[in-house]
């Protein structure tokens, strides 16, 4: 066997180190998924999805995740509804109308960048303080019924805070999608005699639709995965305080104005860190949450693939 030179030994050593780090990252990722599966799958019986959490020291009596799962969906949908129009409007303005030279528009861009870096816990605490002001009492059930302060915690409050939190990210992805529409298509639109807004509406937005949907789905993922904002602004009740039968339309407003939980706060609460002390249930919920996040990611990847197939 030929003697390896120092250079080759060194090269092999460092390449091996790189392979080891890749293997560690893969292993940790697999480890998390396997840990969820191994400890969580046991909890996944039909009743897990059809019963609400029960306060109990006995894990077998701790109920299921019906209310938190519904809470995640309610919060995600209402948060996206709140953020959609403002973010789409801002993205169109930034991509199509903005005069990069103007101070105001540059300030907006810088501001969005700064807002994107602010940790969600700051938003949560900010939201709690803002929406506890008496003028926002209509958004949350006042705890004691006094008019001097609002409770400041409800699905509506949570959705609004989430909207502010994910706005910069959603705007960024949407703006990227809008900017990615080829110049040739815009010119074709103008050459047909469309005004700027009609061109945007008829040509740019339909072409950017997959990217806009991607922004929405990524935004859903951020809402579903966040804990700090939910913990601080949706309240710590495991079930809906507004009405137990949240699925009945006449209960929707009370539910939105009431407190509740999502999968993330359920996990936090049921883990050894919270008071629920039902780690099996926490793992079950974590497994469901992870599956949700993976499904959202897969959907985004699918949209991307559709787009690249179309482009060919």
């Amino acid at each position: 066997m030929a003697r390896l030179s120092f250079a080759h030994v060194r090269s092999r050593f460092w390449m091996a180190a790189c392979w080891v780090s890749a293997a560690v990252v893969l292993a940790v990722c697999a480890g998390i998924v396997l840990a969820m599966a191994a400890r969580g799958i046991g909890a996944l019986e039909p009743s897990f999805f059809t019963t609400d959490p029960q306060p109990s020291f006995e894990e077998s009596l701790a109920g299921g995740i019906r209310a938190p799962l519904a809470g995640s969906v309610i919060l995600a949908v209402s948060g996206i509804l709140a953020v959609f129009l403002p973010s789409l409007g801002a993205a169109i303005y930034l991509a199509e109308y903005m005069d990069e030279q103007k101070l105001g528009t540059r300030a907006i861009r810088l501001g969005l960048e700064v807002l994107a870096g602010v940790p969600s816990v700051v938003f949560g605490f900010w939201g709690l303080a803002v929406f506890s002001q008496p003028i926002f009492a209509f958004l949350s059930d006042s705890a004691g019924g006094d008019a001097t302060s609002a409770f400041g915690r409800s699905f509506l409050v949570g959705a609004l805070v989430m909207a502010v939190h994910i706005l910069p990210f959603v705007v960024k992805v949407m703006e990227e999608a809008i900017r990615a529409v080829p110049r040739a298509l815009r010119e074709a639109g103008y050459a047909l005699g469309l005004t700027k807004w009609r061109m945007i509406k008829r040509v740019v937005l339909p072409s950017a639709a997959p990217g806009i949907v991607t922004a929405i789905v990524l935004g859903l993922g951020l809402i579903v995965g966040d804990t700090a904002i939910v913990w601080l602004t949706v309240g710590g009740t495991m079930t809906m305080s507004g009405a137990d039968a949240w699925w009945l339309p006449h209960n929707w407003l009370p539910v939105l104005k009431g407190t509740g939980s999502t999968l993330t706060t359920f996990i936090f609460y049921s883990s050894p860190a919270g008071e629920g002390n039902a780690p099996g249930k926490a793992y079950g919920a974590a497994f469901v949450l992870l599956a949700l996040v993976v499904a959202l990611n897969a959907f985004v990847a699918w949209i991307g693939r559709q787009r690249s197939i179309k482009a060919q």
């Binding site: 080829p182 040739a184 298509l185 010119e187 074709a188 639109g189 040509v203 339909p206 072409s207 179309k310």
Partner: peptide, 8 residues
């Protein structure tokens, strides 16, 4: 235009 640019 030079390159065909049908809308998607």
């Amino acid at each position: 235009f030079q390159h065909p640019n049908p809308f998607p």
